[in-house]
């Protein structure tokens, strides 16, 4: 499903002519199979987000390759990448990234609108999904009228609505209290089991990483296989 090979990336810091090169990824290789949950652990600033951003196509790697569903993503043009993301990825962000002007329902509906799906079909689909993630009660609420956990459920629903096979989550519970965190993790697990979705979860939190089938630790720009645990 996902094949990352020898990925290297560095950032330039400082003014032009006097910049410093900071290597963040020094040859990361990773394979994720269909229906797997893979967690990438690491301290803050270790380059986890950078890895995810390259995987998602938000930026291009310096060297190395990312192949998703058989497609080398760096080879795609910007507009093709957008379509590719729409087809293949769902995103869950730490701070939810919901549209403040749209209701929960409309936020979930947005990717389908972008896809150009007809209204009737779209509404039905959103309705069903909202029920599945337990949001039917608050469908008409705006993000500022929702709790953190509810907001993250909306954002998960938005990631799922397009039936994309891969969900990329960057610190999905980073803004939630531990009770809510558990709820969300359980939801992720059940979605993985029921729908066979592939998850790549990025976190600094061991407990979050515990839902994963496999864990990796990003340290000093390199990915090390971590211990395997199955609990929650």
């Amino acid at each position: 499903m996902i094949k990352i090979k020898d990925l290297q990336h560095h950032f330039k810091i400082g003014k032009k002519g006097n910049e410093r090169h900071v290597p963040v990824l020094k040859g990361v290789t990773l394979e994720v199979g269909k229906g797997e949950i893979v967690a990438i652990l690491g301290k803050s600033g270790s380059g986890k987000s950078t890895l995810l951003h390259i995987l998602a196509g938000f930026m291009s790697p310096e060297t190395g390759s990312v192949v998703v569903n058989g497609q080398e993503t760096a080879a795609l043009k910007e507009s093709q990448q957008a379509s590719f993301r729409l087809e293949n990825f769902g995103f869950i962000f730490q701070n939810f990234q919901l549209m403040p002007g749209l209701s929960a329902f409309e936020n979930v509906e947005l990717p389908l609108k972008i896809k150009g799906m007809a209204e009737a079909e779209r509404k039905m689909k959103v309705q069903k999904l909202l029920e599945k993630v337990g949001l039917e009660e608050v469908a008409g609420h705006y993000p500022n009228e929702l709790s953190g956990g509810q907001q993250q459920r909306v954002s998960i629903a938005r990631a799922l609505i397009t039936d994309a096979p891969i969900i990329l989550a960057d610190e999905p519970t980073g803004s939630l209290d531990s009770e809510t965190e558990k709820d969300i993790l359980l939801l992720i697990q059940s979605l993985n089991k029921k729908l066979g979705l592939t998850f790549v979860i990025i976190t600094h939190d061991e407990e979050v990483a515990a839902v994963a089938d496999r864990q990796y630790r990003l340290h000093d720009g390199e990915l090390v296989k971590g211990e395997q645990r199955h609990a929650v």
Binding site: A56, A82, S83, L110, K115
Partner: peptide
């Protein structure tokens, strides 16, 4: 800016 970024991340075309 943030909303546009989210739209693009989700998969909206720059043309759109």
């Amino acid at each position: 800016t943030r909303e546009i970024g989210v739209m693009k991340a989700i998969g909206a075309q720059p043309k759109l």
